[in-house]
Amino acid sequence: MKAAAFEYQRAESVEQACAALAEHGFDAKLIAGGQSLVPMMAMRLARPALLIDINRIAELTTSSEHGDHAVLGACARQQSVKQDQRLAARVPMLRAALAWVGHIQTRNRGTIGGSLAHADPSAELPLAACVLDARIVLRKKGSTRTVAGADFFVAPMQTAAETDECLTEVHWPLWGEQRVGCAFDEVSARHGDFAMVAAAAQVQTGEDGRCTRAAFGLGGVDAVPRAFPDLAARLVGSALAAQDIEAAANTAAGEIEPGEDLHASAAYRRHLARVLVTRVLSVARDRSRVSGANAQ
């Protein structure tokens, strides 16, 4: 479990990082927190010829707010995002998801952008990005583009980012703080393990309790995290009663193609998908009706 030989470069700016990516292409790999990449290198499952260290690039650690979305730099550490009170109020999904990500030791190093770029189909942050349809900003030498969360994840450990692109920031939609509830839940073998199934939901309800906006999705059940915008749209206008939620959960569970591994069969995953979607939609609904309930 020693990595194969590699070169190391520290990029001082996004431009430098992009230049190095452009030069080395597939042989190069960006490293931020290294919480997934380094173990994969140690097991020689990944063997980049060049590591480009983006940890020192100041612009990648900033966060701000622009109109209808919060901007989070790719190198924001997971633990500091989890502890950010303002973000917890503005984008409650982040804290809800991060509670399930690894352990405090891994979150201290792990970054938001790193988790998205790694694109593990059972990881929590990619699911959150899909459900909220976050915008992922990719920069390369001379150009910048933005990819929707739902389009970013292509296959297990594979994203829409080209080999010369650097994920620089993530735009998280703001739903406002009133009558919005969110919930994240998952089943894993142990606390902090990869989810067998993860589910996330966010809903907004009106004064009458009826759903005005909804989003939900599942992780660990397919090649990529899955959001269900059409099923969520059908919930709008409903009272989010038990039968509304169950119908959504059943339909979603029927649409996924879960795999099988040592810890969970396809049937178990499908069952968990149904249970967890029901749970997160119910909890999100209840939280939307109690102000401040998202702050956990």
């Binding site: 142990r190 606390h191 393990d193 990869f194």
Partner: peptide, 11 residues
């Protein structure tokens, strides 16, 4: 240790 699951303090 991703598949051979030793309980942690959480379990």
């Amino acid at each position: 240790f991703m598949d051979y699951l030793i309980p942690s303090a959480q379990e």
